[in-house]
Amino acid sequence: MSKQTVATARRKARVRRAIKKVANGRARLSVHRTGKQIYAQVIDDTKGLTLASASSLDKDIRADIKSGANVEAAAQIGKILAERAIKAGVKEVVFDRGAYMYHGRVKALAEAAREGGLSF
Rank of each mutant, 00 (worst) to 15 (best):
S2M: 00
I65P: 13
S53Q: 13
A54L: 01
I86C: 09
D64E: 14
H32K: 15
G48P: 02
V6P: 00
R105M: 04
L118A: 06
D96Q: 03
R62W: 01
D64F: 04
L57W: 03
G104C: 08
K79S: 13
I38W: 12
I19D: 09
T46P: 00
A23V: 03
R26H: 14
D45K: 09
I65H: 05
R10W: 02
R84Q: 00
Q37T: 14
E92C: 04
Q37Y: 13
A18T: 02
G78T: 09
K12F: 10
I38M: 09
D60S: 12
A108E: 06
T34D: 03
A9I: 03
F95I: 15
F95L: 15
I43Y: 05
V31P: 08
A75Y: 02
A75V: 00
R28V: 15
S119A: 12
S67D: 09
V31S: 03
D45T: 05
A9N: 13
A18Q: 15
K47F: 06
G117V: 03
S56K: 09
A99D: 09
A63L: 04
G89Q: 05
A63C: 05
A82F: 07
A73V: 01
I43N: 06
R97T: 04
V106M: 11
A112F: 10
A7S: 11
S56Q: 05
A85H: 00
S55R: 11
G68D: 06
I61F: 03
V71Y: 04
D64H: 15
S67T: 14
G25W: 11
Y102V: 07
A110F: 03
V90R: 00
G48V: 05
A9T: 08
A27S: 12
R105D: 06
L51M: 13
R33I: 11
A88F: 03
R114D: 05
I43V: 15
A82V: 08
T50C: 08
I38N: 08
N70E: 10
N70R: 09
R14H: 12
K87D: 13
Q76Y: 14
G48F: 11
I61R: 02
G68R: 07
G89N: 01
N70K: 08
G48C: 08
E92R: 12
G89W: 01
A73D: 07
D45E: 11
A54D: 07
E83V: 02
D96F: 01
D96S: 07
A85S: 11
G68L: 02
G104P: 04
A13K: 11
E92N: 09
M101Y: 14
A7T: 11
G116A: 13
L81F: 10
S30A: 15
D44T: 01
A113F: 07
Q41I: 08
I77H: 09
N24D: 14
A88L: 05
R97W: 07
K36I: 00
V15W: 00
R10N: 13
T5F: 07
I38Y: 07
T8Q: 15
R105Q: 14
